[in-house]
Amino acid sequence: QQQIALQRLVLQAGSLPTKVICLTQVVSADELKDDEEYEDILEDMREEGRKYGNLVNVVIPRPHPNGEPTPGVGKVYLEYTDVDGAMKARQGLHGRKFGGNSVVAVFYPENKFAEGVYDN
């Protein structure tokens, strides 16, 4: 019975736990255009992400200088060495405010992340 409840919870979350979490609704394309601001945001993410586990990679897709649409802009991807870290980070970051935005944290498929595919 507990297992059923757990399964339902996992399905509700929309994705199974992975080592990668994706923070949506975090940053705007404008913020990312500025190099200094981009570095700042990157550092903010590293600093905070480290608190939850062994953070190995932070990816923040930036908008194309020529205005071409780039997938994943506005999102931040955090990769951990294990699912445990990612789970803690998702738990801890979901609902937190970043620069006034309410962060939504979801697990992101590892294979997509490894291929550098940043969408959805």
Partner: peptide
């Protein structure tokens, strides 16, 4: 001493 954009934990 940068000010992080992260708000304090709720």
């Amino acid at each position: 001493k940068r000010k992080t954009r992260w708000a304090d934990e709720e």
